[in-house]
Each structure stands twice: as C-alpha cells, then as structure tokens.
C-alpha cells in the first residue's frame, strides 16, 4: 500500500494522512461492530447507517474497494434485505486490516 501516493493524491503530507488513517480505521471498525450487531438483531436501519458512514470515509480517502462494498451493504440493507451481508462485511474487515497492517509496517 503506497501511503505516499495516497497522501500526495489528497494534497496532504504523510503525517496528516497517518492521523486520518488512524481515525478512519478506528471509526470504521466501530461501524463494523454496529453492522454485525444490526445483522444479529435484524436491524436493517442500523446496518445501512453504519455502512453509509464507512462508505463516505473510505470514498474520500480513495479506498475504492471498501467504498464499493460498503455501498452495496448500505443499499441492500436499505431495501430491508440483510441476509447474505455478513460475507461482504467480512471482506470489508479484511480490507481494513490490510490498511492497519500497512500502517504498522510503514
């Protein structure tokens, strides 16, 4: 993962980016928890709201895969259909972990 490129793409320096990424992963993992809770409790509204939050943040930072997956989750949940979203949520988690690991080694 090339953080330097992401930073320059956003017009920020790496220090700022690190701060943002930390905030991003923290809030996104919190949102993932909300999604999982919503899936368990059959609360589609909660799932959709939390996915919306991940979508917004990842989209702005340029994490396209996470943005597109969370958009799918948000839209599907909005239709009230939350079955089968667990798998997609897990992929998001994997992607978030990739970012987290890259930050540690960076």
């Amino acid at each position: 993962m090339n953080f330097e490129e992401i930073a320059s793409n956003l017009g920020l320096d790496e220090e700022d980016l690190n701060e943002l990424l930390e905030l991003f992963t923290t809030t996104s993992f919190a949102d993932i928890e909300k999604i999982n809770f919503g899936l368990k409790e059959n609360d589609a509204e909660k799932v959709s709201q939390a996915a919306h939050s991940i979508k917004g943040a990842s989209g702005n930072l340029g994490f396209q895969k996470i943005a597109s997956l969370s958009k799918d989750v948000e839209m599907t949940a909005k239709e009230g259909n939350i079955k089968g979203l667990k798998e997609k949520t897990n992929i998001i988690v994997e992607e978030l972990k990739k970012i987290e690991n890259a930050m540690k080694t960076d």
Binding site: E19, L23, T27, G56, A57, N60, L61
Partner: peptide, 11 residues
C-alpha cells in the same frame, strides 16, 4: 462523519 470532517479540516 468524523473522518470527513477531519479531512476537510486538515486540507
């Protein structure tokens, strides 16, 4: 969205 807010703030 806290991340977006922070991103705007930083920029």
């Amino acid at each position: 969205n806290l991340l977006n807010l922070k991103l705007i703030e930083k920029s």
